[in-house]
Design a protein around this nucleic acid. Structure first.
Lengths: 205, 205
DNA sequence: TGCATAAACGGAACCGTATTCCGTTTATAT
DNA sequence: ATATAAACGGAATACGGTTCCGTTTATGCA
């Protein structure tokens, strides 16, 4: 039972625009929703009512569900967006700082990302299959970002070369997650210790 | 070992009405409820509706809330009961097997306990303060259990002596939790590797 | 054995949140 | 300016937690 039949060869004139472009207000609302959701999740946690987000974005509930069929879709969208933002920070930092420094700064950025979203981490383990693809996206997006920084630092001789981006990423994530219980400061310190260890390795061997 | 030790022989205080003993049906329902909850949580996850548990236990919803003022109280009670069962297994295994073997078997028992309850792990990080005391109970109950096995194995010369029960417990828990994503087999293997490491240490030094 | 009493029970009612449904509004093409 | 389908808003519905209260029943006592 499905009425989602948007693929129709007939009824459309050849050479004409088959489907209208996305309406301007729709895109505006989508953006506003993501922004509102990000803010609400940050302040009230990922369990905040959908109504609260709709209100903050200045739209009706129906609109939320038009863009995100279910609650978890909104959560996933926000999480992906934040992962993207973190990954995108890598090339920017690389352009603004020396390789070693860029890596160190990115790692801190990463810690903040993880630490701020421990609620999302809980969601991941909630058993809801809607979140299943997120871990893969996390790796797929952040590993290359970290690897580029790592390679650059290694090439500049500022860093040892025997650690895989994957391992460093997971180690930092675990550290951030657990250490956050003892305060964000602690997490930050633990991870910078890790990074310093990499730097130390460069001159050691 | 047991938690129902509030039986007083006399029952009535001189010149004063003491509290009546717990009614037989109340105790029966409490037990049935815990058993039903354990089964339902295992099959449908910790998010299963209270109504489902009440039905399985053959009692009304009101009865559930009489015994457990809120949902989380039921979850906590079940978790504590399972922690107790795991802890209680230690002396039993110690009596039935050689020290090293008892330790190894208990660790596997522990892995199963953790692995089967990943839903509960998620609940712990849900932010609900009702679960806050559980980690402490976990440590308080399981550390001594593991320590006794560890000490016995060490005394028998079957194991190195430089690992604290606390560290071993946490390491095994982390391993079980993360490794479970790759299947219960993997978790089991990782932990037995850990235990073998302990044994190896005995002959090494 | 029968009675009084308070504990225990059951489940309807209530509350809050997710999700659906559908009549109304509006951006866009012509 | 008009037609049209996308997009919208929000009332209605579904569902799970929690409360409330009238009814039942185990237990102590005469």
């Amino acid at each position: 039972m499905n009425d989602e039949s948007k693929e129709q060869g007939d009824g459309l004139k050849p050479g004409e625009k088959a489907d209208r472009p996305v309406r301007a207000d729709a895109k505006r609302n989508l953006d506003g929703l993501l922004q509102a959701a990000m803010a609400v999740f940050a302040s009230s946690g990922v369990d905040a009512p959908v109504r609260e987000i709709a209100e903050k974005a200045g739209v009706g509930i129906g609109t939320v569900y038009r863009h995100f069929p279910e609650r978890s879709d909104l959560v996933v969208a926000v999480f992906r967006r934040e992962i993207d933002a973190c990954a995108d920070a890598a090339p920017i930092l690389a352009a603004e700082h020396a390789p070693g420094e860029a890596l160190a700064r990115w790692m801190q950025r990463f810690v903040d990302f993880i630490a701020a979203k421990r609620g999302l981490a809980a969601a991941l383990h909630s058993g809801n299959p809607a979140f299943d693809p997120l871990p893969a996206y996390f790796q797929q997006r952040l590993q290359p970002a970290l690897r580029s920084l790592l390679d650059a630092a290694a090439a500049a001789g500022e860093m040892r070369t025997d650690i895989a981006a994957e391992d460093l990423l997971n180690a930092a994530a675990s550290l951030s997650m657990h250490a956050y219980a003892q305060g964000p400061e602690h997490a930050r310190r633990m991870v910078s210790l890790l990074v310093d260890g990499l730097r130390y390795g460069a001159v050691q061997r």
